[in-house]
């Protein structure tokens, strides 16, 4: 399989704290700190983690909405940092973004037809007639009535708006879609509709997804590979089945055991790992392993040596000194 997207030691730091004009050294939020992965054509990488772990920032870096502080993102083998603005605009067609909030991502004063047509207008891919036709095609594709192209966002429900967002992302025939929590704002019965839609589109067009979510069960359903993020780093990364069957990082294990199960019998029987405390600040992450402050296995070694992401079984990498077996 061909690699379509590759992240190589990507870092994204945001300056914070002291004012810049006094030239004092500023604090930095280490939002994404040294993340590498490869995305194969036609597959889905699920990125999971709690709020503040950097998963959305990673998505934005991949979709070229933010420039990485360090490291490189390669799209079909081309390092995006080497491209000038014009070439960059050209490759933007190949990678599109679906946003979390279907209420905020559409301009309330534009009809949804206009919203869906905007990428084609910006990229000058279709003339007016062509755009109109393409918009209707796209609406049909995502399960909207094509006759509604001149309606406005407020006339649609959350799930329908998310379909508009997906239609817009598909407008330029991208190869990759980065979806940042595409279903978290939706009710559960609508979530499954959107997930089914995304899967159908993947099968039909061979799309690759980077699917960012905090909900492990949703990611389980859609992802081929999973990356678990904690404070800007991948702590576990690999084949989805393997990770869900035998999570090896203590954090992944805790995260899975904390997720409520919709079955009272299983819920009562299983033993839950209760993590204490909150996620530390990404401005001053703990030394060594970043999870050690909440980990029940932590030793002195964890404070001193930062664990690297190593392959424990083929296709399953873990960054932990004491991985579960």
């Amino acid at each position: 399989m061909a690699t379509v997207l590759e992240a190589d030691h990507v870092k994204k730091y945001f300056p914070t704290g002291a004012s810049k004009w006094l030239l004092r050294p500023t604090d930095q939020v280490l939002a994404v700190d040294d993340v590498s992965f490869k995305l194969e054509a036609g597959t889905t990488l699920g990125v999971v983690g709690e709020s503040g772990c950097g998963k959305s920032t990673l998505g934005r870096v991949l979709a070229m909405l933010l420039k990485p502080t360090d490291g490189s993102v390669r799209l079909n083998g081309v390092d995006l940092a080497t491209l000038n603005e014009r070439d960059l605009n050209q490759v933007r067609r190949d990678i599109q973004f679906v946003f979390q909030d279907p209420y905020a991502c559409l301009n309330p004063r534009h009809s949804i037809g206009e919203s869906i047509a905007t990428p084609m207008k910006v990229q000058k891919t279709h003339d007016k007639q062509g755009r109109r036709q393409r918009v209707q095609e796209l609406m049909e594709l995502v399960g909207l009535n094509p006759e509604h192209f001149n309606r406005f966002p407020h006339e649609f429900s959350g799930g329908q708006r998310q379909r508009v967002g997906i239609a817009r992302a598909l407008a330029l025939n991208p190869k990759i879609i980065v979806a940042d929590e595409p279903v978290s704002a939706l009710d559960v019965s609508i979530q499954s509709q959107i997930l089914n839609l995304l899967e159908g589109l993947q099968n039909d067009f061979g799309l690759s997804y980077v699917f960012i979510a905090h909900d492990l069960a949703v990611v389980r359903h859609i992802a081929d590979e999973v990356a678990v993020m904690y404070l800007g780093k991948f702590v576990e990364y690999g084949d989805a089945t393997s990770i869900y069957k035998t999570p090896r990082h203590p954090y992944t294990k805790a995260l899975m055991s904390a997720a409520p199960v919709a079955d009272p019998k299983i819920g009562r029987e299983r033993k839950r790992i209760m993590l204490t405390g909150d996620v530390p600040s990404p401005v001053n992450p703990p030394s060594g392993c970043r999870f050690r402050t909440r980990c029940w296995k932590a030793t002195d070694q964890c404070a001193e040596v930062e664990p690297q992401l190593v392959e424990v079984v083929p296709g399953h990498r873990v960054a932990c000194h004491y991985p579960e077996s």
Binding site: V188, N196, R220, H221, A259
Partner: peptide, 16 residues
């Protein structure tokens, strides 16, 4: 339509 952690099926989810 609830997705479960143990569910490995990648078939279509039931929907309303």
């Amino acid at each position: 339509s609830v997705h479960s952690l143990d569910d490995s099926s990648r078939g279509a989810l039931q929907t309303i």
